[in-house]
Design a protein around this nucleic acid. Structure first.
Length: 437
DNA sequence: GCGATCAGTT
DNA sequence: CACAACTGATCGC
């Protein structure tokens, strides 16, 4: 498709410099320990965490970019073959540890790729970030903004992480006799756990690999792998299910908390009155949720607007490491790009940020279909110099979309022993397992 | 055994 | 209907 100069979170052959915004798996697809396609630029924290995810990686290929200062790269222009200079700045993206945005300047113009980002207007970090960004831009115009459009829809609203973290603390304190498990990923949401630890003056259990990560991040006395010292455990999100909670509750009273940008609700499998095969299903429409058993009798529900108790044992708290709709809007207003493009697309839909925010950068909304003189489409003549990762696979696939068959396997009642054991290993399963003999 | 891709999970 | 991030199975080498 295009000849490459630089790639952001994309790992195909053909670029001269590769940029990694952060270490989540959906941004490292195609990156492996045996990488040899070129230098990789990232933040110092990402570089520190890097060997943990890619054990035998040739570390000399990593290039650390300090935040907030311009770095110059000497590259070869793909079109003319002459030497050109590209400048890049990394800026805190407030997404997960090490996550940055990249701002580029070069013969192709000025480009900003947010990676995944959260833009909380009132946080000190964001104020610093916006100063850094505005300072870097000076009078430059961002020609193309590559935007984290995960929640680029007005229905996606949620509070700041600080507020959401306090909601989690409130849930925990209102269950003084319960064990607590919180579903988290391999990186991210550390601030939430720190907030809980501080507020409740307790250590927090994590699984062994996660403890290593915590140590790399510089947290040495807050997390533990000993279950006996705390009732609060952070467990891998993929091991967190209704079954798990049901199982745990046969041993000790336990509640689960899911921090997520989306509100969740249970949808039981038809004809199955047991909860074994239940799915977790997201909804926009929260009024439906609360009208139908989502809202329980807890007195605390009063102060917790966006908290949903969607199952006897499970709470959903809207703690998100991605920007909500309004924050995306604020960010676009700040940057005021000439054009923009979303970097994220879910399996079935892609929200073009121009649809909602085209007016903010003088672009027409694509669905209006005006017979307006389009700016030239620049197909063949001008090469877009940046490959950018989209989770959207369309680029490689032609026309036919693969149908994804949804086999809800035979009531899904059966849980394989492998997965039971895995869960046990990661600490979700029962205390009996680790205390036995 | 490794990497890429697909499929399924929460 | 709907997320991001993750694990596991399978295939080709």
């Amino acid at each position: 498709m295009e000849e490459g100069l630089i790639s952001v979170d994309r790992w195909a052959e053909g670029s001269q410099a590769y940029f990694l915004t952060h270490l989540h798996a959906d941004h490292t697809q195609g990156l492996t320990s045996s990488w040899a396609k070129g230098p990789i630029f990232c933040s110092s924290l990402t570089a520190k965490l890097f060997p943990f995810k890619f054990p035998n990686f040739t570390l000399s290929l990593l290039r650390v970019l300090d935040l907030g200062s311009w770095h110059s790269l000497s590259l070869i222009s793909p079109s003319t073959g002459s030497k050109i200079t590209v400048q890049v700045m990394a800026i805190d993206a407030h997404h997960c540890p090490g996550a940055v945005m990249f701002l580029f300047r070069g013969e192709f113009g000025c480009l900003l790729n947010t990676g995944d980002f959260r833009w909380e207007k009132n946080s000190e970090r964001a104020k610093l970030g916006s100063e850094m960004l505005l300072n870097a831009l000076q009078d430059d115009v961002v020609d193309v903004l590559y935007l984290d459009n995960t929640y680029c829809n007005p229905s996606y609203e949620f509070p700041s992480r600080e507020v959401a973290a306090q909601q989690v603390v409130d849930i925990i304190t209102s269950h003084p006799e319960h064990d607590i498990i919180i579903g988290v990923d391999t990186l991210g949401k550390e601030d939430l756990l720190l907030h809980i630890s501080n507020a409740l003056n307790t250590k927090i259990w994590v699984w062994p690999e996660r403890l290593q990560t915590m140590h790399l991040l510089g947290f040495h006395d807050i997390f533990t792998t000993k279950t006996s010292v705390t009732r609060v455990r952070a467990v891998p999100r993929y091991s967190f299910s209704i079954e798990t909670l049901e199982g745990l509750n046969t041993m000790r009273p336990t509640i689960g908390i899911i921090p997520s940008g989306l509100p969740w609700v249970v949808k039981p499998i038809e004809g199955d009155d047991k909860l074994f095969g239940s799915l977790l299903v997201a909804r926009y429409n929260r009024s439906k949720v609360s009208s139908k058993g989502g809202k329980q009798n807890d007195k605390m529900d009063g102060n917790l607007g966006s908290v949903k108790r969607f199952h006897k044992y499970i709470y959903s708290v809207q703690y998100s490491d991605h920007s909500c709709y309004q924050e995306i809007e604020e960010f676009i207003k700040l940057v005021h790009p000439a054009n923009m493009k979303g970097i994220v697309s879910s399996s079935s839909c892609y929200v073009d940020p121009l649809y909602y925010f085209g007016r903010l950068c003088g672009k027409n909304q694509p669905l209006q279909g005006l017979h307006h003189q389009h700016q030239k489409k620049e197909r063949g003549d001008r090469v877009v110099p940046v490959h950018t990762n989209s989770k959207f696979r369309s680029g490689c696939y032609s026309g036919v979309e693969k149908k994804r068959k949804k086999v809800v396997g035979r009531l899904g009642v059966h849980l394989s022993w492998v997965s039971v054991l895995r869960r046990a290993q990661r600490g979700v399963k029962l205390a009996e397992n680790e205390r036995s003999n």
